[in-house]
Amino acid sequence: MKKLTSEELKKLNTNKGLLAIVSKNPLNLERAVRYVNYQQKLKNLQVELIKLQTWAIEKNERIIILLEGRDAAGKGGAIRRMTERINPRHMRIVALPKPTDDERTQWYFQRYVAQFPKAGEIVFFDRSWYNRAVVEPVNGFCTSEEYQIFMNQVNDFERMILESGIRLVKIYMSISKKEQAKRFEDIANNPLKQWKMTPVDEAAQELWNDYTTYKKAMFSKTNTDISPWKIIKANRKTAARINAINHVLKSIPYDKTIQI
Rank of each mutant, 00 (worst) to 15 (best):
E103H: 11
Y108T: 05
V123F: 05
F141K: 09
G140P: 06
N139Y: 01
T143K: 10
T143W: 09
R111Q: 01
R111K: 12
F124S: 01
R132P: 02
P117S: 11
W107C: 09
W129R: 02
E145S: 15
S128E: 00
A114G: 06
D102R: 14
C142D: 03
D101L: 06
W107I: 12
R104T: 02
V135T: 13
T105W: 00
E145M: 12
N131A: 13
Y112I: 07
I122D: 01
Y108N: 08
Y108K: 02
I122M: 08
A119L: 07
N131T: 10
Q115F: 00
E145I: 08
Q110L: 10
V123G: 06
D102M: 12
A114S: 07
A114T: 05
S128M: 03
E103M: 08
S144I: 12
N139S: 15
Q115A: 10
E103D: 05
D126T: 12
V138N: 07
D102P: 01
D101V: 06
F125M: 06
D101N: 11
Y108R: 10
F141C: 03
R127L: 14
F109R: 11
R111A: 02
I122K: 04
E121H: 04
A114I: 00
P117C: 14
F116Q: 05
D102A: 10
N139G: 15
E103C: 08
Q110V: 00
T105C: 01
Q115N: 15
A119D: 14
I122W: 02
V113Q: 09
V113G: 02
K118F: 12
P117T: 01
N139D: 06
F109C: 00
P117M: 07
S128H: 05
S144D: 15
W129P: 00
S144V: 12
Q106I: 00
F116S: 02
F141Q: 07
Q106N: 10
F141Y: 14
D126H: 12
G140I: 07
N131Y: 03
Y130W: 08
W107F: 13
V123S: 07
Q110T: 08
F109E: 11
R132Q: 11
T143R: 12
D126W: 09
F116I: 10
V113T: 14
Y112N: 04
W129L: 01
V135K: 02
E136P: 07
S144M: 09
A114Y: 07
P117Y: 11
Q115P: 07
V134I: 14
K118P: 00
Q110Y: 10
N139H: 15
Q106W: 14
V123L: 06
S144A: 15
S128P: 02
P137W: 13
F125A: 04
D101A: 09
F124M: 12
E136M: 09
P137Y: 01
